[in-house]
Simulated assay, not measured.
Amino acid sequence: MTKLMTSFIALSAALSSSAFAQQVTLNLSNEYAANSIHGVGDARFANAVADETNGEVEIVVHYGGALGYKSADHFDAVSVGALEIADTYGGALGGIDPLFLVSSLPFLVTTVEEAKLLYEVSEDKFQRIFEDNDQILLYASPWPPSGLWGKEPLDSQAALEGVKIRTYDKNGATALNELGANAVRMSWADVVPAISTGAIDAVLSSAEGGISSSFGDYYDTYTEIYNYAIPLNFVHMSRFVFDELTDQQQEGILRAAERVSLENWAAVPDRLEETYKELDEQNITVVDTSDPDFRNALQDAGETTLEKWLEDTGVEGEKIIKEFKEKRNE
C-alpha cells in the first residue's frame, strides 16, 4: 500500500470519528524554514484560523519538509487527501500546468504591486486547476524579488558563463542557459546540501530565502538582477477535508485565508528591509548590476523565456499577459 493511500485511509478514519466533534486538527506542509517569509505566513494563517473559528480548527504547520513531502509532492498528496493543506512553490506545479509558471517569468514584473496585479488576472485559472483536482486554492503569497547568491559577483554575462546555478523552475533554466550559465533545477530542500558539497556554484533565490536558510555560511555575495522575478507560493487545501468541516468552520478558514493573503502581500517591504539589514550584519556584499549590456542580455533572455512559456500555455497564457499589460498601463 502506498504512503499516499495509507495516509488517506488514516485521514478518512480520523475525520469520520471526529465529524461531529467541534475540535478539528489539520496539518499544513511547507518545504521552507519556519523563519522564511512563507513559514511566517503559515504561522500567521494558523493563528488566523484559530481566531476565525473560535478555536474549533487548529492548523499544525510542519516546516522544512518535516512530513516527508517536497513542494513537488504537495499537489498529488493534497489531491488524494494524504495532506490536508500545503504551502507550495508555484514553480513546482509547472508540470501540473505551465500556467503556474507565470509569476516566475523573468522581468515581466519588477514591483510587488505588479506581481499582485499579475496574480489577480491569473487567479481564476489557478482556482479552476485546483478545483479540477479536488482542491481549494485558499490564497497565494509572494516571495521578495529574486537575485543570485554566490562566492563572487555575477553581474555580467561573462561572469555567468559556465556557472552551475540552482534555479527554481523551467523558466529559470531557460533564462539562465540563454545567458551561458549551466542551470540546474532543484527543490529547495536539496539546495543547502548541494551548496555544501560543491555540487552547485550559485543559487537563484531571493535575498530573504538565502538569509532564512543560512546561505551566508557558504556564500558572501548577493547579486541583484533588476528584480528578476517575484514568484508565488500557493496555499491549497483538500476539497475532501474541507467538505467534512461544518459550515462555520469552512467560513472561518476562508475568512482567515482572505485576511492572511492581504497581510502577506503587505509584509514584503518590511521583510525586505529586515533582510538587507541581515545581509549587512553578516558582511554579505550586495552587488547592484549596472552594466547596460548585461541588462540588455537579461531582457533578451526574459523575452525568450516568455515566448517559450506562451508556446506551452497557448491562448490562456496569451490572455493573461494581454490583460496584465493592459491593466498595468491603465
Rank of each mutant, 00 (worst) to 15 (best):
L15Y: 07
D312H: 02
A48S: 14
L138C: 11
F126M: 09
W149K: 07
A199L: 04
K319S: 07
A66F: 02
S196C: 01
K3Y: 14
Q282S: 02
V184L: 12
E113N: 09
F294G: 02
D201E: 15
E84L: 02
E31D: 14
T285M: 09
A301Y: 11
A158P: 03
G95F: 01
L28C: 15
L15V: 13
Y69Q: 03
P231F: 03
Q127V: 15
P269L: 10
V163L: 09
N30K: 08
G317W: 00
T111F: 08
M237H: 02
G41T: 09
G150N: 12
E273Y: 03
F107R: 13
Q299R: 07
G162R: 07
L28Y: 10
K151M: 11
D201G: 05
A183D: 11
E131P: 00
G314M: 02
G55F: 05
I225N: 11
K319A: 13
W188Y: 11
P144I: 08
S156F: 10
E274S: 07
L272N: 06
Q135F: 00
I253G: 00
A21M: 11
T6F: 04
D220K: 13
P292T: 10
A66M: 05
H38F: 11
Y222R: 12
P292V: 10
L204F: 07
V40L: 10
S17A: 15
E303Y: 02
T2M: 13
D300N: 11
T304P: 00
D169E: 08
M1E: 06
G198D: 04
A207S: 12
N329Q: 10
Q249S: 04
F294V: 13
S214P: 01
M186Y: 04
L232R: 02
G94E: 04
E273Q: 08
I59H: 00
L83Y: 01
E178A: 15
I165Q: 06
E244M: 12
E208T: 13
A19L: 14
L26N: 00
Q127Y: 02
N283M: 07
V203M: 09
T289F: 07
D51I: 01
E307N: 09
G172V: 12
D73G: 07
Y63D: 10
W149Y: 10
A33L: 14
P193N: 03
D280H: 10
K151G: 15
A194W: 01
E208L: 09
P193C: 01
G302S: 06
S18W: 12
Q250A: 08
K125Y: 12
L279Q: 05
L83A: 02
Y89V: 14
